[in-house]
């Protein structure tokens, strides 16, 4: 059963403790609250949520850039959270990150060829000539001019820099690439190029993606399965097509209903659900269901009992006492 599971997160919690002079005692901020899911080999698992929902923190906990407060993360059935730094190293190589800001994530003083070669040099994967050959191969793979390896990051456009970031992440032949908002800083035309490139690379190299973004359209486009996060929790998890066709959680439903779409006058007008208010501060979580303060369907029950993430129909998980579209989903 777990043969096809590459990465499994079980009850992952990440808390930060904050202290401000205004507050007497330390406040605990639950950035990731009890998150469980699995990423299957070869798929793209999308995580979508608004800013502050904990999606980036979760990604960092998964690749062990940050130690989760509790919970377990397994990679190829190996528990990562208990490994020493040293023992973790081979697994780290197999999980690479691609960051949001292609301007900030590349060292401006180094030549791009060296930036791409660095992980290989640090890990001593081979002779210098082998590494150089590999850099050229990677540049070709991501569609960059191999003659440009001697240049510096500032000589490249945003899209090209993101390609450099992707080339670097692929240098150690990872099996999992965690992409944290990889295209949100790019112009739309360039964003499409990078998304297409990522799709090509996945096909050619058999990569598994964990794709994190706030843009519903982008996540829909790339993902096989999607998890929706709100205030550190997964509120809904399903196959992308099902989730987008008939969202079960009121939050997902509202998100989808307000995502701007192109209206050329031929579609039937949508019903927009504009939820009011702001996301509550993570150190001030509402009791019961985290979304209840903004949910149009919340009842007293929601304030008392936090709904667990349950599998409503095979493969469709939702954390809501009153799931929406339930009849359509099961029909």
């Amino acid at each position: 059963m777990s043969d096809d599971v590459l990465l499994r997160a079980t009850n992952v919690v990440k808390e930060f403790s904050l202290r401000s002079p205004g507050l007497r005692q330390r406040a605990t901020m639950r950035a990731v609250a009890d998150v469980s899911f699995e990423v299957r080999r070869g798929e793209t698992f999308g995580i979508v949520g608004e800013s502050g929902c904990g999606k980036s923190t979760l990604a960092r906990c998964l690749v062990q850039l940050m130690a989760p407060t509790s919970g377990s993360v397994t990679f190829n059935d190996v528990e990562l959270t208990t490994l020493s730094r040293r023992k973790l190293r081979p697994y780290r190589r197999q999980m690479q990150l691609v960051f949001q800001d292609p301007y900030a994530s590349l060292n401006p003083r180094r030549r791009v060829g060296d930036i791409v070669a660095e992980p290989m040099r640090v890990n001593k994967t081979g002779s210098e000539s082998a590494i150089r050959a590999r850099v050229l191969e990677l540049f070709e793979l991501v569609g960059l001019d191999t003659a440009s390896i001697q240049r510096y990051p500032h000589e490249f456009s945003g899209g090209q820099r993101q390609r450099i970031g992707i080339a670097r992440s692929l240098s150690l032949n990872p099996s999992l690439v965690v992409a944290d908002e990889p295209v949100s800083a790019l112009d739309v035309s360039v964003q499409a190029q990078v998304l297409n490139l990522m799709a090509d690379l996945q096909e050619r190299l058999g990569l598994t993606y964990l794709f994190i973004a706030h843009d519903l359209g982008v996540v829909r486009h790339v993902s096989d399965r999607v998890a929706v996060m709100y205030l550190g929790e997964i509120v809904e998890l399903a196959n992308a097509d099902d989730l987008y066709a008939a969202p079960l959680h009121p939050y997902t439903e509202a998100l989808l209903s307000v995502a701007p779409e192109l209206d050329d006058g031929t579609q039937a007008p949508r019903e927009r659900i504009v939820i009011s208010g702001d996301v509550p501060a993570p150190f001030n979580r509402p009791s019961g269901c985290a979304f209840r303060t903004r949910c149009p369907f919340a009842t007293d029950h929601c304030a008392q009992v936090a709904p667990p993430l349950v599998e409503l129909t095979p493969g469709r998980f939702v954390a809501c006492h009153y799931p929406r579209n339930h009849s359509t989903a099961s029909a």
């Binding site: 090209q160 035309s189 360039v190 799709a199 359209g217 486009h221 987008y244 989808l256």
Partner: peptide, 19 residues
């Protein structure tokens, strides 16, 4: 080039090059 929530396309139309 804009991925949309209402339909899934396997590939996005792209504009080659950069602005």
């Amino acid at each position: 080039a804009v991925p949309r929530v209402e339909t899934k396309r396997s590939r996005l139309a792209t504009i080659p090059g950069t602005p």
